[in-house]
Amino acid sequence: MRYLRLLGAFYRTSIQTDMEYRADFFTRIIASLLGLLTTIGSLSVAFTYTTNIKGWSFSHVMVLLAVYYLMDGLIETFIAPNMRNIMAQVREGTLDFVLLKPVVPQFMATLRTINIWRIANILVALGLAGYSISRLSLSVGLSEASSFAITLLAGTAVVYSFWLFLVTLTFWFVRLDNIEQVIWQAFEAGRYPIEIYPYWLRGALTYVIPVAFIITVPAKALTGQLAFSYSFVALGMGCLSILLSSAFWRYGLRFYTGASS
């Protein structure tokens, strides 16, 4: 309860900050629409020669794309700004102020701000998802919707954990500016069905950097191609990744304060 109130205070202040940059909202909408259109354009070229790629029809791929943009929006709104902050704070020594507060440091460091205008990406993605689903004339029932919500949440948790894990490395190495590059490069691979990649890459994208897990799985859930029970497996994986990355973060903090040497 106390932490919910805190989260409210955090988000309120960061939304107030963003209100000064209202124009950002519209540039974001335009940017994500443009990105979307070019991707759909090149996909539709591919689909003029075939009606399905490794079992994925055009409309199914559009759903996947929608989930990709949705995840992108969630990351940019809730996760990325905080992770970038932590890296800057470690470099500048202002992480000390987080540690001085009577609050769980991970909570304050990773949930301190949101980038509200990135909601634009989320809105565009939801629009595309609705459109593609109507094209497929699928009926999304309660079971699909809840399975989608659960797998999406689990996917977000995995991204959060993966990023937190990499950010924690800055306690030892201080400068790791290329972390974001690694994350986004891998993430981009997720905008296409995992099945189109060669076998070895598919393995890497499923287990090493679980892009397949965070995008393909929710997309399958939304289109009813996923057994409902699997969403609990996904939830379990999400929780596990949070537990592991939090443990690593706490270990890193001990190093930061010199408690481990």
């Binding site: 106390r2 205070a9 020594g93 202002t94 000390d96 009577p102």
Partner: peptide, 22 residues
């Protein structure tokens, strides 16, 4: 070093501190 958020008025940071310190 500063604990205050750069882009917002100090008052807003105070409100966050109010929540943090209850």
């Amino acid at each position: 070093r500063s604990q205050l958020a750069w882009d917002i008025p100090a008052m807003d940071s105070y409100l966050v501190n109010q929540a943090i310190y209850e």
